[in-house]
């Protein structure tokens, strides 16, 4: 354990490829999880809001199940569970699937709330011009709901990025595990954990800024 700038810079430079690779794995796994969760979550949110009741019930059960489960358990379950059924998924993709499955529930639930908060008059106006049900949802309700769902969606994205640290337990060498491996060689515990923490903060801060930009971009959607 040291906090010596010269030694740290030397060690960091030596480990630069391992760390960059870790950051890359963190960013790509976050990205794939976010994309999957957003698409699946939008779909499931519409199901939660409008679908035929048995489907709605199923989606409801899924959301409640996922919200009650620790993400770490879900990750272990996905990886070892799939292996038990002789489905060999690389740890990276098992992790992405688990994170996406978790975040899908959050996106879906947030979208349902957003859909409900769109004023009833919007649906009536859409009916009045003769739009059929799918068109009413797609062209009138969803755009307004998406605007409302943006702030919680950014939160979910941040949770996913932080959640990728848990993939280290199934052996995915993301930024945290990469840092640990470096520390195992040079024992500079504080230095490299601190650096990892800073990198996570910078990544998440950038995402939050991007979210704020999107919110401003859609700020014309108001009543």
């Amino acid at each position: 354990m040291t906090l010596e700038p010269g030694t740290f810079l030397f060690e960091a430079w030596t480990a630069r490829f391992a760390l960059m690779n870790g950051l890359w794995v963190t960013m790509t796994s976050s990205f794939f999880s976010i994309v999957l969760a957003t698409l699946a979550g939008l779909l499931m949110g519409v199901v939660l809001s409008y679908a035929w009741w048995p489907l709605r019930l199923l989606a409801r059960a899924y959301v409640d199940f996922m919200r009650g489960m620790p993400v770490l358990v879900l990750i272990l379950f996905t990886y070892y569970g799939l292996a038990m059924f002789r489905i060999n998924v690389p740890p990276y993709w098992a992790g992405v699937i688990a994170l996406a499955a978790f975040a899908t529930a959050h996106v879906a639930e947030n979208l349902r709330g957003a859909v409900q908060s769109v004023p009833a008059g919007q649906m009536e106006a859409a009916k009045a011009i003769g739009l059929n049900f799918p068109k009413r949802i797609w062209y009138v309700i969803v755009p307004q709901a998406v605007r409302r769902v943006l702030p919680p969606w950014v939160n979910t994205c941040l949770e996913i990025v932080k959640g990728t640290t848990l993939l280290s337990v199934i052996g995915v060498v993301e930024l945290l595990l990469a840092s640990q491996q470096v520390i195992a060689r040079n024992y500079m515990v504080i230095d490299f954990y601190l650096m990892a923490a800073m990198i996570y903060i910078v990544v998440n801060f950038s995402i939050a800024q991007l979210g704020a930009l999107l919110e401003r971009r859609f700020s014309y959607i108001r009543y």
Binding site: G121, A126, L131, N132, Y220, Y223
Partner: peptide, 29 residues
């Protein structure tokens, strides 16, 4: 929906679509 398309309606609270411009509101239908 087809029957509704033959009848126009204007509401007390306007109910314009906030995510569309004036032109977009008229064009949607």
């Amino acid at each position: 929906s087809a029957q509704r398309a033959r009848i126009g309606m204007v509401f007390q609270s306007f109910n314009l679509f906030p995510h569309l411009t004036a032109e977009g509101n008229v064009m949607l239908g």
